[in-house]
Design a protein around this nucleic acid. Structure first.
Lengths: 244, 244
DNA sequence: TAGTGGTCTAGACCACCCT
DNA sequence: GGGTGGTCTAGACCACTAC
């Protein structure tokens, strides 16, 4: 068949396979066509097909059995939160079955806290651009997110800022930087007064706290953030798959 | 050079590269030899080298820059907890800087709870083998772990069981099953009396709770588990890397 | 311009599962 | 035996970065 999508061939095959799995073109829980059939179908080499299948396998979306075939894991199909979902709060909200939205509480430049200065490896007297935002699930506040970016990285005169962007898009739009990797720490904390108020909790309650630092390919810290949410409303679910 | 290790060529190259990075054979934070140099060095094809480098890159251990080279990420070197660390509590304890040990509290067959019955997809009147274990960091109790395996999966007459094995090894030794993937839910909970006692907490405190279900390649649930630990003592740290 | 990583191909051989 | 996925090779061309 002919491919008309943008991007590399592997990405196109990837997108097509995901579509077909999602839309049930291949029987849910059933077997995928063999690698050689997929090669013929897409008109690509086996290596390309295998690259894509390997990626889907590490996400747990398919299960591969030597000498038998490749099977669709309907279990995972419903979970859109693989890894990477740790920072995409919009997806996290969606995967819990709600419609996500974002409200920007404040976006302003200020001097850094001690923690920010360490995490972002700031020099003396460097400021940060601080974002405070609330994520909503079906209109109900569920996640409070603080993020800080070294002011030096922000393009001059690039405001006003769109507080509705996720961090990756924000960094690209206003800093022209790409995220290479991130380190996250997950903690369990009791909600303070501010959190009880902002998240409309009835009373104080243990919440999940996610601290995350994003780095670019030059190992330079781009953003650090601290976020809070009630794990009784949203589910933090991770999938790990082993090829073998 | 000649390779003398067991396993596939790719695995041997993988192990060698990790060793060299860990031992500082390649300058920490510096550049790795180019792909073609590694090919010559190891005597393998470029595709094989690239397979290995891709894996190291997704773990964040190396940073790849087109047109430039491959750089060692000294930042990640110290973090042995990539993904997969979510269930290997021994490693989790090590990565927080302690010496891990395990004590088995009880291993017994019993009827399942409602949750276990659902999670393990048990039939009527099926029992489970229940493990209750404590993990220690430098001799101090830090993680309480409950795990349940359908009795049907356990080889007949395979007891007594070694409570010091991690789940993967336990399943292999006593059930001859391999884990294909796992789904984990992370929650924030207040320690109850039993936990305060077992983990020698001074008072009740918010803890991290990890609920996990392991499946085999046939999508059959093998084990479900619930574990608790104090995130003030142990760090739950995840690394996510994007190839691009 | 030279060298690096990124993408893709065609083909070989092996290990494994099913019937 | 026949088909499936697992491993590996040799070689081509492209895109990007540093100089």
């Amino acid at each position: 068949m002919t491919i008309i999508r943008p991007g590399t061939i592997a990405n196109q095959v990837n997108a097509l396979l995901r579509e077909r799995i999602r839309d049930g073109v291949y029987p849910p829980g059933g077997r995928l066509p063999s690698e050689s059939e997929l090669c013929d179908d897409f008109g690509v080499s086996r290596a390309t097909v295998r690259t894509v299948l390997a990626k889907l396998a590490t996400e747990g979306l398919i299960l591969r059995k030597q000498g038998d075939g490749t099977y669709i894991n309907e279990h995972i199909q419903q979970i859109n939160t693989h890894l990477g979902g740790l920072w995409e709060f919009g997806r996290l909200i969606e995967s819990s079955g709600y419609r996500p939205s974002i409200r920007s509480i404040s976006i302003s430049e200020r001097s850094p806290t001690v923690g920010e200065s360490q995490n972002l490896n700031l020099r003396e007297a460097e400021n940060v651009l601080a974002l405070e935002r609330l994520f909503y699930a079906d209109g109900k506040p569920v996640i409070l997110a603080h993020n800080s970016i070294p002011s030096r990285l922000v393009d001059q005169g690039s405001g006003p800022f769109d507080g509705g962007l996720n961090i990756r898009d924000f960094l690209w739009r206003y800093c022209h930087r790409k995220i290479a990797y991130a380190i996250s720490d997950i903690h369990s904390v009791m909600a303070g007064e501010e959190l009880v108020d902002l998240l409309s909790l009835q009373r104080t309650r243990p919440l999940l706290q996610i601290q995350i630092i994003f780095y670019d390919r030059d190992n330079q810290p781009l953003v650090c953030g601290t976020s809070y949410f009630d794990d009784k409303l949203l589910r933090l679910r991770l999938v790990q798959a082993w090829g073998g």
